[in-house]
């Protein structure tokens, strides 16, 4: 009997006994095969791809690219949807289809900008707090809590009002209220990873603080933040739209969806198309990113996503 075991133990590579089950799953990105098991994720990704593609290709696929800027067509004011103008025209005669597609670029730029800024700030503060702990943790987290204590939208409104109204300033204002969420999340992740065996193992193997932070903490903590970011994209689009709607964000003639909704509001009863199509664009994009976020959460959740 022992012989049977011994033969398995020779230094030469040995296949493991069948007694041990072997599960094979890819590590970071579970791949399309797994993604296919989450239909919402797929719908979200297709929708988002369409939105992104349409806005990137806007200059070539829109019928009146010039209408994205400051032009006026007095003869085309508030025309209902037709073959020439699929989504109709607005109060100064610009093609709404063109402006909705170009508006995607603004929204995507704002989302990417806000996410980048707030993720960088949030991850740095959160990882530092969770990793070093002690007084640094206390100080950083109290500061974060102060930011979290204000209603985010109100803070963004106040900030945007202090700065001059523009799309860039709106993005800055949103980022300023957004990072504390990532800081909290990253801190929790870092603190729990810090207690894992592999963090101790890295220390014993000689890893310094920098290596521990960058090679072990950052990759493992960022998964959760990454998922949260995709969930937040919809919220950022809506917040940006809200700021523009309140006149604190992008200014005419920039084709920002929230601004377009604001401009269309007085005309809602007489020219429904002015408010409807930008509104639909916001809805579709927000839903797409929400599906993606939900889907990613499932994929990365070891209890649900992995068989």
């Amino acid at each position: 009997m022992k012989d049977l075991l011994n033969s398995e133990m020779m230094p030469a590579p040995t296949p493991d006994l069948q007694g041990e089950p072997r599960r094979r799953r890819p590590a970071a990105w579970p791949g399309w095969r797994v993604a296919r098991r989450f239909p919402l994720l797929n719908i979200g990704m297709v929708l988002a791809a369409l939105v992104i593609l349409a806005s990137l290709l806007a200059p070539w696929i829109t019928p009146y690219p010039a209408d994205a800027g400051a032009v006026i067509h007095p003869d085309l004011v508030l025309e209902a949807p037709s073959f020439a103008h699929w989504f109709g025209t607005d109060a100064v005669g610009r093609d709404i289809f063109t402006r909705v597609l170009f508006g995607g670029r603004v929204s995507i730029a704002i989302v990417v900008g806000v996410l980048l800024i707030s993720a960088v700030i949030g991850l740095s503060i959160g990882l530092a707090a969770g990793f070093f702990g002690g007084w640094l943790d206390a100080v950083l987290m109290r500061v974060t809590d102060v930011f979290l204590a204000f209603p985010a939208l109100l803070l963004a409104v106040a900030l945007a009002a202090m700065l001059s109204a523009s799309a860039v300033n709106a993005a800055l204002a949103i980022a300023f209220t957004w990072w504390p969420w990532y800081a909290r999340l990253a801190r929790g992740q870092a603190a729990s990873i810090r207690r894992q065996g592999y963090a101790d193992a890295a220390i014993v193997l000689g890893a310094g603080r920098a290596r521990l932070l960058i090679r072990h903490l950052l990759p493992n903590a960022s998964t959760a933040v990454f998922v949260q970011m995709s969930l937040d994209a919809a919220g950022i689009i809506l917040t940006a739209a809200t700021l523009s709607y309140l006149g604190l964000g992008a200014q005419d003639p920039i084709p920002e969806w929230g601004l377009m909704v604001a401009q269309g509001q007085p005309l809602a009863t007489t020219a429904w198309w002015v408010i409807t199509f930008p509104g639909l664009a916001i809805l579709v994009t927000a839903v797409a990113f929400n599906f993606i976020g939900d889907g990613l959460q499932n994929v990365f959740d070891p209890k649900r996503g992995r068989s």
């Binding site: 894992q196 000689g206 290596r211």
Partner: peptide, 28 residues
């Protein structure tokens, strides 16, 4: 050196076997 109980998550889930074993060699 310390050899942990397997259940303690002694291996970084984001590191391949190659990079895990090579890590001490790279550090030192």
């Amino acid at each position: 050196q310390l050899v942990f109980q397997d259940g303690d998550g002694a291996l970084d889930p984001r590191m391949s076997v190659q990079s895990a074993i090579a890590e001490p060699l790279a550090i030192h």
